[in-house]
């Protein structure tokens, strides 16, 4: 349970600010990052849905290879990849072990490997795309595809307000700690200490709720004076805002390249459905 303490130490304002916001807006230097957000989203939609209904292992493997290439291209942080792999392996691993217990055999491993392959393709697709889109471009892309403007606004507002919220959370947490009393003994497996911290973290939300309520009131009032509701009812504004989105030749190249690859893949898949196993 020492991990809890370390985790709480990690909730240092500066740390999170730097880690999250620094990287969030830093993605447009990669090849995928330079593509139009709509291209990426459409591309993603395909790879998020189709694999579910493909049971041909050759096709899935081909898709997986493509995903690995795009993942490398988008320079995803190794940490995220590690988390992904770990999650997939442990999930499937436990499933397999339990199925052995229920009378399954080694042969149940194969369908599960297929499932893993599917899940990997889908997860890698989402990681590639969403780590290549900075929040602004993502929200613009989504709103051009018809997601409500309120979501797009919330997304960028989230990035605006997060540091403020963290700061305030941190201060209130400090207030609790400066006036509180940590358990003198850590207890069994640091249980007491963990309970103490978790209790504070929950309690912090009481003042935080009240303070945030005050804040939201001004924010919404200010939004009114800044013409936000006017824009929501005005399609012209949306058009103006999204006018910078442009399908460049690289977008078409990327899309047609992917199409060609998939077509070839399906053709190959039907010829040799059991290339892998």
């Amino acid at each position: 349970m020492d991990a809890v303490k370390r985790a709480l130490d990690r909730i240092s304002v500066e740390q999170i600010k730097l880690e999250l916001l620094g990287t969030a807006y830093n993605s447009s230097s990669t090849f995928l990052g330079k593509l139009d957000p709509r291209t990426l989203l459409v591309w993603y939609l395909f790879f998020a849905i189709v694999p579910w209904f493909v049971y041909n292992r050759t096709i899935l493997l081909g898709m997986f290879i493509l995903m690995v290439i795009t993942t490398v291209l988008s320079r995803v942080s190794p940490y995220i990849l590690f988390i992904l792999c770990f999650g997939l392996i442990s999930q499937i691993g436990w499933l397999f072990l339990l199925s052995l217990f229920f009378g399954g055999g080694i042969e149940s491993l194969l369908p599960m490997l297929t499932l893993t392959l599917k899940l990997s393709v889908i997860s890698l697709a989402s990681i590639t795309v969403f780590s290549s889109l900075d929040p602004e471009r993502l929200s613009d892309g989504l709103s051009s595809l018809g997601v409500p403007d309120m979501f797009a606004f919330s997304l960028s507002y989230g990035y605006r307000i997060l540091p403020t919220l963290l700061e305030e959370f941190h201060q209130i947490l400090l207030s609790f700690r400066l006036r509180g009393q940590r358990p003198l003994k850590h207890g069994w497996l640091y249980c007491r200490t963990a309970v103490y911290y978790l209790r504070i973290v929950v309690l912090v939300f009481y003042p935080l709720m009240l303070n945030t309520a005050k804040r939201s009131r001004t924010t919404i009032e200010a939004l009114e004076t800044r013409g936000f509701s006017y824009a929501l009812n005005n399609p012209k504004v949306k058009k103006l805002k999204l006018s910078y989105l442009l399908m460049k030749w690289s977008d078409w190249l990327f899309l047609s390249g992917s199409c060609l690859y998939i077509t070839l893949l399906f053709w190959l898949g039907y010829l040799h459905p059991n290339l892998l196993y």
């Binding site: 929040p135 602004e136 403020t164 013409g227 103006l240």
Partner: peptide, 28 residues
């Protein structure tokens, strides 16, 4: 134009340029 006493809460976008353009953009 109205600037609030708790002006921090009237800034709603992540970056400076975005925020300053927010109002004229809303008005089209």
């Amino acid at each position: 134009g109205y600037v609030y006493q708790d002006f921090e809460n009237q800034l709603v976008r992540p970056t400076v340029m975005d925020d300053v353009c927010f109002t004229p953009l809303n008005y089209g």
